[in-house]
Design a protein around this nucleic acid. Structure first.
Ligand code: SF4
Ligand code: SF4
Lengths: 128, 128
DNA sequence: CCAATTATAGATATTATAAATCTATTATAT
DNA sequence: ATATAATAGATTTATAATATCTATAATTGG
């Protein structure tokens, strides 16, 4: 019942990028790594997932780096969570009788409330 | 972002106990272990936490076992989660600037919705 | 083309935590 | 006294997250 550090890093990196978005310049992972105090290689690995999910873009080589996509304002916190950790279930039923089940239903309801809250939080909301 | 197997076991054990509650008899961990297909020692360790939290009682020795407390109907799913895994935070801030923070706030809101849903689910609701 | 820069990929190592077992001890009924 | 049953502590196993290392590919500027 815990989000990953990777998600934490990703959110912070994004907030940092948003703050620097005025520059419209590509930000190398070096900068982010320095700001967040996380190793460049690991952070890069994390950010690559955000690239794959198409919320930021990346360019290799000199003067390269990461940059927010145009639609970033509408990206939700949940989008980031999924991009990093994939779709998760809160409750792993060890037995799974398959049928409609109250335990499952209770957990699912909780999970859906959690998810819908995070869907309503957009990156824009994190920085205002 | 996952509940523990121990919580899963505890909930199932409780549901099983509720089903047999008519007997008003103490249920040895052996029975539960058989029903859930989990080792007696491990399940016992899990249930001991529920005992400590005072949602069930236990008696050692022959004809001993576990039994629901009188107030069991009002025990919530969240109570069980806390009894097993303790109070958890969904989001572990790697940096923690302390001040009011949007990232924290978003995660906290999600967490509170999750928790309040589980607080509203009582054991009684799992078996009706 | 060359050298420097930067992201990516794959393999591997490290760490942390949960899950499970084992053994010994304590409590209780008969 | 004996069998039964919970509890406690130490230890092991399993699993996943975190992190590092190395090599490769892409891009820029000269
Ligand atoms: S009772 Fe529900 S949660 Fe438990 S094993 Fe059956 S289907 Fe799964
Ligand atoms: S921005 Fe918020 S979540 Fe991030 S380090 Fe600061 S206080 Fe913590």
């Amino acid at each position: 019942m815990k989000f990953s550090k990777a998600t934490d890093y990703a959110l912070h990196a994004l907030v940092y990028m948003i703050h620097r978005d005025g520059e419209r310049t590509k930000i190398p992972v070096q900068d982010l790594s320095l700001a967040l105090n996380v190793s460049t290689t690991y952070l890069s690995k994390v950010l690559t997932r955000i690239v794959k999910a198409n919320y930021i873009s990346s360019t290799s080589g000199a003067k390269g780096g990461y940059r927010l996509q145009q639609n970033w304002e509408n990206v939700s916190v949940y989008d980031i969570v999924v991009a990093i950790d994939g779709v998760q279930t809160l409750f792993e039923d060890s037995f799974d009788h398959g049928e409609e089940c109250r335990i499952q239903a209770a957990m699912m309801e909780a999970q859906e409330n959690l998810i819908s809250t995070l869907k309503n939080k957009r990156l824009k909301d994190l920085t205002v």
